[in-house]
Design a binder for these strands. Sequence first.
DNA 1: GGATGACCAGTTTCGATATTTGGTCACGCA
DNA 2: TGCGTGACCAAATATCGAAACTGGTCATCC
Lengths: 243, 243
Amino acid sequence: MTLDRPAASPQADNERAERILEAARELLVAWGYKRVTVDEIARRARIGKGTVYLHWKTKETLFTELLRRELHVQLGTVTAGIEQDPSSALPSRLVREVFLQQARNPVARAVHAGDSEVLGALAITASGLPVIQELGFHTLLTRLVDVWRAHGLMTVTASAADQIYTIDAVLTGFITGGIAVPPGEELPPDHRADLLGHTIRTALETSATPDEATLHAAAQDVLATLAAAQDVLAGAHPRSASH
Amino acid sequence: MTLDRPAASPQADNERAERILEAARELLVAWGYKRVTVDEIARRARIGKGTVYLHWKTKETLFTELLRRELHVQLGTVTAGIEQDPSSALPSRLVREVFLQQARNPVARAVHAGDSEVLGALAITASGLPVIQELGFHTLLTRLVDVWRAHGLMTVTASAADQIYTIDAVLTGFITGGIAVPPGEELPPDHRADLLGHTIRTALETSATPDEATLHAAAQDVLATLAAAQDVLAGAHPRSASH
DNA sequence: GGATGACCAGTTTCGATATTTGGTCACGCA
DNA sequence: TGCGTGACCAAATATCGAAACTGGTCATCC
């Protein structure tokens, strides 16, 4: 049943992996991890099922990479925003951006919300931690808080641990959207993002507006921290890495 | 199998209802709504099963009243705090207190968190709303924000709706505790309550410290609002109300 | 006449069976 | 010769009728 046979060149191989990931992504959003079958992924990618296993050892590693990439892209967008405007590196602005990403991207939302309806068994990793933590989000947040404090963008009256916890809790609350929100009265995502930004800013940032130089220096460090996090996230496939 | 027969006086009747509710409460916390049987409740309250139905029409109404009472008691504690110290009526202080209540009381926590593991079918009411909303929490919050704004304890630069949403989201986030918190590093409830209070204060309260008179007047209105909410919550049993 | 537990209908649980699905690998095609 | 494939297998999951349980009632008894 082989109608077309693309050359097995490295780039064709790579393009095929992308097709598989894209098919997996569509199905994940539409059906949720549990309902998605490897057969269906293969069908959508117009390849045989065995070929999927040429790229990933298991269904789980395939989807884990998908989530990793999603976070990677998200951090890339945040990076781009800071490169265009250094003030985007401010705590409130960065958290705001993460929220917006999550609001616009169903996979990112599932990861941040730990939505087991979508993520299924992936919601909690083998080590008993939520995916978002396994993906290094907490580590990244810790490093960012250090940078922000070092550059005087955040108060140092509270401990770093307290500030990390605060950001985490507030962001989670805004993502969850609160329990008692009456239906039909939801605020638009952009507006909610503004409220989140305002909350983070007043709770954690220093009141004085930072001068240009400080902001620029801080932005550089934030960019470096994001790049480092992206590197970790970029870890190669378990399979194609070996050859 | 009737060994003792207490007189069927009104107060004995009332005391019996309390015993049933207490038994139901213990079982709810230990087993969750779904696993609790009316038989077991009756056994713990040392009465026959039919007697439970002399007090409540269904298992559901029994537990609904239990949750109503829990909220009622919680508001009572908040009220007592304000009566002792008017500054407890400040937004940050009041929200802080609600958080602490919830942290200390498993039933309150389940209600605030919408924990279906504990609440089972009760988590979402017939009207499709979470219990916490059915119990009027959102209405109460709306009224409180109005009072706070009227007395100048809260900024009026943002809309009331935005402030309600912010309180709701932040409180929910702190209750949920954030997704990415590494195990073993949880902060103690009192400390988390302080961080929550700080967040609410900086995000929503006016910066100037209110004078004694303003605070006192506001506290009176807050107390009235709480009392009104308690009245709604105090609605009599479906059964014993009729005779 | 208030309290009770045997009783009933509707629901949940159970478990044996049938189906599906993740993962492998011998084969075929280029 | 080796990449790609789909038939194949064991394990997981869905199915479905039977058995057990539970919410709610009410005839009976104190």
